[in-house]
Amino acid sequence: MDIFIQQILNGLVLGSIYALIALGYTMVYGIMGLINFAHGEVVMVGGMVTVSVVSALMAAGLGLPPLALILIGLMVAVAACMLLGFTIERVAYRPLRKAQRLAPLITAIGVSIVLQQLAILVWGRNYIPFPPILDHDVIQIFGASITRLQMVIIVLCLAIMGGLLLVVEKTKLGRAMRATSQNPAVAGLMGVNVNTIISATFVIGSALGAIAGLMVATNYEQVHYYMGFMIGLKAFTAAVLGGIGNLAGAVAGGILLGIIESLGAGYIGDLTGGFLGSHYQDIFAFAVLIVVLIFRPSGLLGEKMADRA
């Protein structure tokens, strides 16, 4: 039972990070019908920049408290990622908006590779440890333990996601975004500047990605040029699981996937009589993805697509 609660807690931490990244995928997909393959790399850049800034500030010896260090690092990372997201859309996707679907997918893969290679160029191929400023206090809940940091991750993720939902539901920008996702042409006729809205979507999604990058970095206490790939793929799975294009769905899908994954990793050994071990953890996300797409391609919260001739 303790293992069960422990895995649920681990799943919640992982899941809220997935959810945050999944929002980036789902927002872009909702508005442009495009899988932004490079979003995982934005997360990676967010993590990398934070670590670099924090390390640099510490080396400068200003004696700032850890929270200030992380906040400054995060602010720089968010700014960098917003710029990055804006640029990616401008350079790689906007010219292809009318092209066949294959073209933007290939460009997205190209952008992904370029960002990874640039990361190698700047930060090298090795794992970079997070500077030793993280708090490791553990809280006990029902016999399971969770660090305070992980609690912060969960709470912060939920707060940010709530904020985003408010923006989309209540503000003028949100209304324009929803209109664009319904029908860009009509939204354009109604005076919505579709280009601005698409840019804004990328920028907001990238900002969330940067925050997620920091969380991944603090949770695993290291960063790496390839860290965005797997987590991006899983977050995409989460978005599909919840119903791609649906914000609440992305959140639900992310948390659910996180829990499925931790429970799966915790119990796969028992389930298969020791044949498969916890290093098969990554398989769960793909298995979930495949099962969802086959049985309910519209996702858990997505609208059922009508069959049309």
Binding site: V91, L96, I106, T107, G110, V111, I113, V114
Partner: peptide, 17 residues
């Protein structure tokens, strides 16, 4: 090499999809 490959993918799709 990989950097050029990634760039080639992007440029090719933009110029000659």
């Amino acid at each position: 090499r990989m950097l050029l490959f990634g760039l080639a993918l992007v440029v090719m799709m933009l110029v000659r999809p």
